[in-house]
Structure formats: structure tokens, C-alpha cells
Amino acid sequence: MGVIAMDKKQITLYYSSENSIGKQLNAYVQSSGKEHLTIDISKTNVTGTQWAELAEGLGKDIPDLIAKDLPDFRETYGTDTVNLDNDGWLKILDKNPRFLKNAIVIKGENYIELTSASDYKQYMDPDSAGIEKPYK
């Protein structure tokens, strides 16, 4: 059993308000009229266990959650390949939440990585992706 609560009637959004896509997605979720929980990782500490669960739910490794191609990342950590263990990558997310590559939505048991605000409409509009059913 994971540490992240899952509810098929609730949208849970993990995002960083330090980037424009995160802000846009938060606005979409807030105005959706659906039950939601938004977690701004810039203001709320996400534990290593939660990050591990998010990565696993997406079928990724923790380093895959980090935008290593951002100019700020390269300026901070260099242009060479950064070799860290999972604890090191978690520290990067903790200290620099703006490096979160994409927002993550959990709807029921589905983990979805959103790369743009339009992704939200694609995945959250009823039956647009075959994962959501209209509320009764």
C-alpha cells in the first residue's frame, strides 16, 4: 500500500508554482469544479517515499522527474552528466522544486505526467482518454 491517498473521485496535482505550466495547470484544476488536492512542491515538502511512489506510478526512475536540460539546471550542476544516487536526486527536487520536469496528476489509480496545460483537458475531460467517467 502506498503513502499517497488515491480517490477515483479526486484529482491530485503535484506541480511547481515556480514555472508557468505548473501555474496554468493549477488554475485548470482549481476551476474544474471537481474534487481536487493540489500540492505545490515549492511550498509543501514531498517526502522521498512519495517521490518514489510518483516515479513508480509513472513507470520512471526518480532522475527522470528532473528537467536536466534546463539552463538553470546546467548552470547549477554543470553541463556534464550528473551522476547521483536517488538520495542526491531527491535533494535536488527538495532544494530546487523548479527543476521538476512536468506536473503529475493522480486520478484514481492512474498517474499521468502533464507536459502542458492542454494535456489536462486531454486527460481530464470525460472519456477523452478513456480513463475518466463523468461524475453522477
Score class of each variant (00 low, 15 high):
1 M>V: 05
1 M>S: 06
1 M>I: 04
2 G>M: 12
4 I>H: 01
4 I>G: 03
7 D>V: 07
8 K>Y: 12
9 K>Y: 13
10 Q>T: 14
10 Q>V: 08
11 I>R: 08
13 L>K: 04
13 L>M: 03
14 Y>W: 10
15 Y>C: 07
16 S>Y: 11
16 S>D: 08
17 S>H: 07
19 N>R: 06
21 I>A: 09
22 G>W: 01
23 K>Y: 02
24 Q>T: 13
25 L>E: 13
26 N>H: 12
30 Q>Y: 03
31 S>A: 13
33 G>F: 05
35 E>C: 00
35 E>Q: 03
36 H>K: 08
37 L>R: 14
37 L>G: 01
38 T>P: 02
38 T>I: 08
39 I>E: 08
41 I>D: 09
41 I>H: 08
42 S>D: 15
42 S>H: 09
43 K>F: 09
43 K>R: 15
44 T>D: 04
44 T>F: 11
46 V>Y: 01
46 V>F: 00
47 T>E: 00
48 G>R: 04
48 G>D: 15
49 T>H: 02
50 Q>I: 06
50 Q>Y: 03
51 W>S: 04
55 A>T: 07
56 E>A: 15
56 E>C: 05
57 G>F: 02
57 G>H: 03
58 L>R: 04
59 G>L: 07
60 K>E: 08
60 K>T: 00
61 D>R: 12
61 D>A: 13
62 I>W: 11
62 I>S: 14
62 I>N: 14
63 P>M: 11
64 D>M: 04
65 L>I: 05
66 I>K: 10
66 I>E: 13
67 A>M: 00
67 A>E: 14
67 A>G: 04
67 A>C: 02
69 D>A: 11
69 D>W: 05
70 L>A: 10
71 P>A: 00
72 D>R: 05
74 R>S: 06
74 R>I: 12
75 E>V: 01
77 Y>N: 09
78 G>M: 11
79 T>A: 04
81 T>P: 02
81 T>S: 12
82 V>W: 09
85 D>P: 14
86 N>A: 12
88 G>W: 11
89 W>V: 12
89 W>T: 10
89 W>P: 09
90 L>K: 14
90 L>D: 12
90 L>C: 10
91 K>A: 15
93 L>A: 05
94 D>W: 10
96 N>E: 14
99 F>I: 10
100 L>C: 09
103 A>I: 00
103 A>R: 03
104 I>N: 05
105 V>Y: 00
106 I>F: 01
106 I>D: 03
107 K>N: 08
107 K>Y: 12
109 E>V: 09
110 N>M: 05
112 I>Q: 04
113 E>A: 15
113 E>P: 03
114 L>A: 01
115 T>N: 13
115 T>W: 03
115 T>I: 05
115 T>A: 14
117 A>V: 10
118 S>K: 12
119 D>W: 01
119 D>K: 01
119 D>C: 00
119 D>V: 00
119 D>Y: 06
119 D>P: 07
120 Y>R: 07
121 K>Q: 04
122 Q>P: 00
122 Q>F: 11
123 Y>T: 02
124 M>A: 01
125 D>W: 05
127 D>I: 10
128 S>P: 01
129 A>K: 13
129 A>E: 10
129 A>W: 00
130 G>L: 03
131 I>W: 12
131 I>G: 06
134 P>R: 14
134 P>G: 08
135 Y>C: 01
